[in-house]
């Protein structure tokens, strides 16, 4: 019963930062995903899975196992290139999905490998797509990403860096687009994440269980309501879900045309410099996230205030360059400085 219904995103109580981070990414996927840090039982997985209900549709090449985007002919898989040259590709509209990467995945299953059945029955090699193919154009979700085996993390990094999954395995040489929004959750008590992987996540948010009693009650009430009768429960949230979905679609249209001004760029670099964050990915992510925030508000262009508002999500996990420099933001001092700094722009 429950399988056919996902808990609605707008029915989640609290966890504002996590929800904002996910929505901003949906508006502007180039932000590069979200890492959610927190203890067990803080609605991390529920929220990520709930996001599926808000995702926009994609136009893809019909029948493509790598989910190639329709129209993006410079970066499609070899089969789609073949379809194009023989002149028969067809378009198809599919919903964007949340694709899960289980911790027990093997290299073959993640990267893709030789199709064994095909080889034995025909004596010919054929590529069998893996999770990185399924994730193309979708959300790649890794629960407990800090427990993922090192060599699987390497494959993710490789694909994330290039937007392409190159496979050189078992006599198969193949490449297909693999651009995904990476969403990971982790419980920090169980170990750190490699800095390289950390840097790949556009945003990071910390979550904690609801403390306030009234809200805790509400969490339980809603959860029970959903378990008893998911259909009625979801109907109750249909309006708020569709309203948010419309806002996201609208924002996606705005953000495409957005040209952030020099003050926004200066704000991004200035804040990074002040906090001692190196690397350009942070600056770029700040600008993009600020754009998404403005677009979600229905504004045509972002302001330095947008940058300040999202800076914590972008920078907190990038503040240590090696595992031995402590991270952490001095909230008050930062806010004071930020106000002064924004006035100079």
């Amino acid at each position: 019963m429950r399988d056919s219904h996902t808990y609605p995103f707008t029915a989640i109580v609290g966890q504002d930062e996590m929800r904002e981070a996910l929505v901003l990414n949906t508006v502007y996927p180039e932000i590069g995903g979200v890492l959610i840090r927190g203890e067990k039982g803080t609605a991390k997985s529920t929220t990520v899975r709930a996001l599926a209900g808000l995702l926009p549709d994609r136009r893809v090449v019909r029948g493509c196992t790598c989910g190639c985007t329709w129209g993006d002919w410079d970066s499609v898989c070899p089969e789609c290139r073949e379809r194009l040259s023989s002149g028969t590709p067809e378009a198809e509209t599919v919903p964007m999905k949340v694709v899960e990467l289980p911790l027990s995945s093997t290299e073959d299953r993640v990267a893709g490998t030789m199709d064994l059945e095909h080889a034995i029955s025909t004596g010919r090699k054929r590529f069998e797509p893996g999770i990185l193919a399924k994730a193309n154009g979708n959300i790649l979700y890794v629960d407990e990403v800090n427990l993922l085996d090192d060599h699987i993390v390497d494959l993710l990094l490789d694909a994330a860096a290039m937007g392409v999954n190159y496979i050189e395995r078992e006599g198969i040489s193949y490449s297909h687009p693999s651009r995904f929004m990476l969403v990971g959750t982790m419980n920090p008590e169980e170990g750190d994440l490699r800095p390289q992987l950390l840097d790949r996540f556009g945003l990071m948010v910390e979550v904690a269980g609801e403390k306030e009693e009234g809200r805790r009650m509400e969490v339980i009430r809603r959860r029970m309501g959903f378990e008893r009768d998911p259909e009625t429960f979801c109907e109750g949230y249909a309006a708020s879900e569709s309203e948010l979905r419309d806002r996201i679609v609208e924002a996606r249209n705005i953000v495409k045309e957005m040209e952030p001004g020099d003050d926004v760029l200066r704000a991004a670099v200035g804040i990074s410099l002040h906090l001692g964050v190196e690397g350009h990915r942070a600056d770029l992510t700040m600008v993009r996230t600020a754009c998404a925030r403005a677009a979600l508000d229905g504004r045509e262009s972002p302001t330095p205030r947008d940058v300040a508002a999202i800076s914590r999500m972008v920078l907190s996990h990038r503040m240590r360059r090696d595992p031995f420099q402590e991270s952490g933001l001095d909230e008050e001092g930062l806010e004071q400085w930020m106000n002064g700094f924004l006035d100079t722009l």
């Binding site: 004596g123 010919r124 490789d158 190159y166 050189e168 395995r169 078992e170």
Partner: peptide
């Protein structure tokens, strides 16, 4: 030419050609 991290030795340096061997 990209060297992906998933590369296997036989694919990097060459191995027996499957299709040729079968036929």
């Amino acid at each position: 030419v990209e060297v992906p991290l998933n590369v296997t030795a036989e694919q990097a340096f060459g191995t027996i050609d499957l299709e040729e061997a079968v036929s």
